[in-house]
Nucleic acid binder design. Structure first.
Lengths: 128, 128
DNA sequence: CTAAACTCTGACATCGGTGTGAGAGTCAAT
DNA sequence: ATTGACTCTCACACCGATGTCAGAGTTTAG
């Protein structure tokens, strides 16, 4: 499919899709006219890119992570042994982020469960 | 403590600490000379700010989240009822990020467990 | 053939988060 | 009083991610 269709189906702007290609996150084929030709699987890839960006990973790390997966195959294989260290570091980083988010969410849960204060002025700020 | 000490203890630059104050994330007292005076609790606050930024939240959302907590108190109280909606949305957003990170981490785990491929050229990329 | 829609590349711009430097005031030890 | 370290504000700069626009080529339906 062409870039406009991918944009409509993913909700991601054409500008950003070109930027993702520039950053190595997407690798569309090119027609003789120079037009990009994306694959059906790219719809899911763009979704993944968006969620990883939203979760704080940068394009360079996402590119490395995406390089690890093999499409339409039960067995996932890293493209080379050297990437294992990178993958493990990416994994650790994700674990740290998950831990941070979970702890923050627990605190939010406690605040939400407490309900609105009847005396907001009395409540001191977390950073007084 | 003064800004230089907070910077050393947290590993965060003086420039960033001033930026965080500018964004409402930190609220140091001011001495008559204009010097900032931070609290011991600000060391932990800065740590939390860093991890939330790293996890993809922006300074505006972090400021709202930090406003919800009460220092040195068993019971956490939101400062006003209107924030509950914001807190719940922040909570949902964190849940979405956690889910995304966990799914990506599961995929990384599968790749790492598979070990290095002996024929990396044979492996197709996730985005072929 | 025509026209509208689509796409190309390149360039400029914005915003958030970050770094660096200038000029001047403050602090604290000597 | 002096001096080195620290701190203040302001300004400029960079980078990543994003948006907008211009000029020109391509596609597709009529």
């Amino acid at each position: 499919m062409r870039i406009g269709e991918l944009s409509r189906r993913t909700g991601v702007s054409v500008r950003l899709l070109r930027y993702y290609e520039e950053q190595g996150l997407l690798r569309p084929e090119r027609q003789p006219s120079g037009y990009r030709e994306f694959r059906e699987a790219d719809v899911a890839t763009v979704g993944r890119i968006r969620s990883l960006l939203g979760a704080g990973l940068g394009t360079a790390e996402i590119s490395g992570v995406l390089d690890c997966f093999v499409e339409d195959c039960e067995r996932l294989v890293p493209t080379c042994a050297e990437m294992l260290g990178d993958l493990e570091r990416a994994r650790e980083r994700m674990t740290g982020m998950i831990d941070d988010l979970q702890e923050s969410r627990r605190m939010l849960d406690a605040v939400i469960a407490a309900g609105p204060s009847e005396e907001p002025e009395r409540a001191m700020l977390y950073r007084p």
